[in-house]
Design a protein around this nucleic acid. Sequence first.
RNA 1: CGGGGUAUAGCGUAGUCCGGUUAACGCGCCUGCUUUGGGAGCAGGAGAUCGGGAGUUCAAAUCUCUCUACCCCGACCA
Length: 488
Amino acid sequence: MSNQLPEQKTNFSKWYTAVVNKAGLADYGPVKGTMVIKPYGFQLWENIKDAFDLMIKSTGHVNAYFPLFIPKSFLAREAEHVEGFAKECAIVTHTRLKNDKEKGVIVDPESKLEEEIVVRPTSETVIWSMYKKWVQSYRDLPILINQWANVVRWEMRTRLFLRTSEFLWQEGHTAHETQEEAQDETLKILELYRQLSENFLAVPVYQGVKTDSEKFAGAEKTYCIEAMMKDKRALQAGTSHNLGQNFAKAFDVKFQTKDNKEEYVWATSWGVSTRLVGAVILTHGDDKGLRLPPKIAPVQVIIIPIAKNEDEIKIVKNYINSFCKSLKELGVRIDEDWTNNTPGYKFNEWEMKGVPIRMEVGLRDIKNEKIVLVRRDNGEKIFLSKNELVNIIPSLLEEIQDSLFAQAKKFRDDNTYLVSSYNEFQSIIKEGGFVRCGWDGTTKTEIQIKNETKATIRCIPFDENPIGKHCIISDKPAKHEVIFAKAY
RNA sequence: CGGGGUAUAGCGUAGUCCGGUUAACGCGCCUGCUUUGGGAGCAGGAGAUCGGGAGUUCAAAUCUCUCUACCCCGACCA
């Protein structure tokens, strides 16, 4: 009983920390704010990564790798950009250690660098310094490069997967001939993010544009997908930026057009991070632990053998072997738990780990040529005969995938409110949830609402309908309909 | 960066006020036997320079000073 989780409803943040730990996803690293992603958590990330990698490759993108280290001066090239990251950079100032008789190992002051090096908080600057070399004519465009990498943003308050000082992500950096092309790319990627989130993570999202005060430093427009977590707070799950010509101008990247004119290149950048793992946990988890969508679950089916002695173990093993291989051939990720723990212990353990289907196999089932399955998404017990397995398991996995999405979507929709009075706005934000309402489009009201309620504009959704609406706080005619929420 | 707190075995704690045997307990871990359809039982065992340093004392986990690290709460953030 000592292994139980804190109750989700009353103690959400403790629940989160405990489930990450007990499910074996991650651990704290020795430097504050760093995270060790353990094998089970990393497999989950890899499955997400592989799914997205396939998507971008099938849309003509290629992977490359750019350096971790950036000359300090690069960041300063783009004024907004440097301002956005100035407060959270790790900086390399020296290159050597030496032994000191009194203090032990110290930084060798002799090794101080002429120009300090910044550990990348994002790679626009290094990448555009290279694009300058690579681009001369329109024939060199477009460049559709992505990289899978780690980045560092020094953070005060951190939480595993959601906010750590170092995290893993992909960052796409594209260069185009025209503004339209860059805009198309920005939106194309946003759509891929929606597909990744909804079809693989089973996390429903709103797509929209960030307001000026929430957009990426250095971007013309930032588009995003926003999801609702189980505590009714918003999580930004991915961003896609139209960078205009800002970085091309900062790094002087020009090309010759077909009619022999010189023009600056148009750019985009876009990223999703290991934060997506956090989104999965916070969207689907319950009081028993994780609930993983089958498409990204490291283990889709866990077999719990039930046997009292050596003889029974042999019989059960044979029985499992008689069907296990054919399931694996179908591509089902199936695993068996032969540890010496009791069945009850294993049930709880694998529920904690969020495995979509549990299979119980004991003498009782063997006698009847039956199998017992238990669904993690709703706890339903299913009895079926052995020869049905190959047909049922794949479709059951799909059903669980859909069910998790449907549950999450219902939860989000039930907690999204169309609101027209500020009083109502305040009470909903206090209770938690998304508020859709009119906004007059000024930064002033946006900030005022943030100060008074802690809610921020998550996005201006694509399906907004501002006509006839009034600003929730100034009562002026609404310029946009927006989604407000407290955010991670 | 401001306010508050904590530091004792892998984890969670007791002991500290009022100094005095071999530093205790739960979980976990190791060995063996018995178990196994919702977190098994018994027996044995390993594991701690009590955060670091200095001081007071016959004697320090306990008192004093100091350093360090971490946690919680307020301003920034994928």
